[in-house]
Design a protein around this nucleic acid. Structure first.
Lengths: 209, 209
DNA sequence: GTCGGTTATGAACAATGTTCAATAGCCTTC
DNA sequence: GAAGGCTATTGAACATTGTTCATAACCGAC
């Protein structure tokens, strides 16, 4: 029974990604199966492989949307130019998103592609874009524009936050409640930032226009 | 054909854990299957379930050994009592171990137990033990003995390092070479430590007995 | 030797990702 | 309108997975 509802390939694409995201939200990325997606959109399992190369490809699409969502979320933060204010604001959005969508988050940062599959370039570009937004909060420490240092700083901080949320979720940090993770994140951020500023305080004065 | 080689249950236990570890080392935790372990020790798949509750249980055993290995590794570091020296030493061991045994590391920190399975208490105790060793390098900042602050400090730092190695390995931090990860780790450590010391320098003088 | 109780077996089951020949329906052409 | 062809869809099939459990093989005791 072909073309039952006459959905174009792009319509199918959208439907399947939405179905996959919904399944991931409810059951986690481990609960995502080809047959569930197929049933959810009213097609047969085989049809998924007319639209996506494989399940990893589908997951990549979902993660791409999550990245967009996160980027849009970050874009709503009104930056003051003061790292000591802006950075905590970003951290809050970061943590809030993770708390609100734990399974999407997990799929985004904890999921490993199967052997042989790679994150496509457009996906890595989205990651870069997200990083650039977070980096904006750190840049003023170093000058008017992004530098090698500011990039390193935001990478280190981002990775640090990722580690906290990741270990907290997996329960490997002992028994870490959400509250503790939040406290840890803020502690790391403020302490790290203090360390950064200390190194810079004695340097040249900040640029004034 | 029962009792083919007359291995006691505990011998079988050891053999199977060793086989599992070897498979994880070579192919990663995703490459571990019941049938491979069985073939490796010369038994049938079903025999594994006479010794272990399930595959997760076997993985937990392997990870337990890795924790022991790591703890023994940390124990060889001779502490000076100066955090600015001891902490980088621990970081180096941390990174060296991760670089030398990436798949064991990944199984230890990136693997999620299947729904319904929990890390047993003896396992969490081993994690605590490892943490305590790392904490020892931070404790002098706060006083003669571990405090709530020192625990938070080492948790934040540990999680931060975990995040760096984790994101570097998954390739989510853009394209991060091993060298970059190492640099990031040291940057985070020194900067974070600088922030910690700054907060303490201006405070009350350290306790003297 | 015989018997009883472990213990290893491996066939079986359900579920997985993925493939692909067959087919059902739509579109173009006459 | 009818016919033919093209393409999207199917769903059965395959290999592989974790896990179970009736069966059978073995060992030690009597």
């Amino acid at each position: 029974m072909a073309r039952r509802s006459d959905h174009s390939r792009s319509e199918l694409f959208v439907m399947m990604v939405a179905a996959a995201r919904s399944i991931i939200v409810e059951e986690g990325v481990a609960g995502l199966t080809a047959r569930k997606v197929a049933a959810s959109v009213g097609y047969s399992p085989g049809s998924i492989y007319n639209v996506f190369k494989n399940l990893d490809d589908l997951i990549v699409q979902v993660n791409g949307e999550t990245l967009d969502q996160l980027t849009a979320d970050f874009a709503q933060i009104s930056m003051t130019g003061d790292p000591q204010r802006d950075l905590p604001a970003i951290i809050d959005h970061y943590l809030a998103f993770e708390a609100a969508h734990p399974n999407l988050w997990s799929a985004l940062f904890d999921y490993d592609l199967k052997e042989g599959n790679r994150w496509p370039d457009w996906y890595l570009a989205k990651v870069d874009q997200l990083f650039a937004m977070a980096e904006a909060a750190v840049v003023p420490i170093y000058g008017p524009a992004p530098t090698r240092e500011s990039r390193i700083a935001i990478q280190a901080l981002w990775a640090g936050l990722h580690g906290i949320t990741s270990l907290a979720r997996s329960g490997t940090l002992g028994k870490v409640a959400d509250e503790t993770a939040r406290a840890l994140a803020h502690h790391l951020t403020t302490t790290y930032l203090a360390g950064l500023m200390e190194g810079k305080d004695e340097g040249p004065s900040p640029p004034h226009n």
